[in-house]
Amino acid sequence: MSLRGKTIIVTGAARGIGRASAELLASAGADLVLVDVADDLPLVPYALGTEGQLAHTEKLCRAHDVAVLSCPADVRDLRAVEDVVATAVQRFGRVDAVVNNAGIAAPSGKAVHEIGEDEWSVMLDVDLFGAWRMTRAVGGTMARQRSGSIVNISSTAGLVGYRNFAAYVTAKHGLIGLTRAAALDYAPFKVRVNAVCPGSVRDDPVLEGRMLSEIAKSLDVPVSEHEEIFVQAQPTNELVEAGDVAEAVLWLVGDGSRGVTGSVVTVDGGFTAK
């Protein structure tokens, strides 16, 4: 039970990497605050996490005998994000870690000059500014506690570029910049900020994951064969599992990674090593 007594906020917790991470953290004994928009966004062309999915994640976490609070909230709303943190502090007395996992993969699939202003904005607003808002909301609390760990879920798209994917790539690159800068801001207070860069993560039906097929669409990869095609680019000859990403998150939120801050942990089966 290495996370016993810790309180962790996970955004985008309804499904996918968010659900996998939340459950793994719960199994390690952490109390959880699960955040998801639990609704659709008009500009996003696919269905986002639902209340039912969020409730299911909560149920999976509770099975590990930890306390869980579900807080539906849109990370584009600063006030809502601050309320989540305030609620967490009221209920649990502290916030030990935040996993900024909320992210959207579309609207994408267009070259730069074809992207509309609000398409560009919504991508950055969720994928980059959302993490900034949450960091802003917990930073003071963690600094006062003299302890804390913020984990930003970036992507291999934060390390290299992809065609027709500029907004996502920009946001994910920016997220790494935010990670490093915030790490320096908070280092004197023993609060750490790190990023995880997942590569091609398989959409696990149990986790109700969706991201990879949406990315396939944006990258013009036929969805029926997208897994096979992505695998060919993997030196390990297999896709990454969401659980693998969750393990990196587990390490970074805990005391075992005490000496690690401002760094990037890449979980991509060797994709960017080429």
């Binding site: 109390d31 005998d65 306390a67 009221q90 007395g93 006062r144």
Partner: peptide, 24 residues
């Protein structure tokens, strides 16, 4: 024992260093 564990966890939970109310 599971209820007792839950009680223990509540007892060990800190109150926020600063906060809106002195009692949770």
């Amino acid at each position: 024992p599971r209820a007792v564990r839950t009680l223990h966890r509540e007892l060990l939970r800190p109150v926020p260093l600063y906060g809106p109310a002195p009692v949770r």
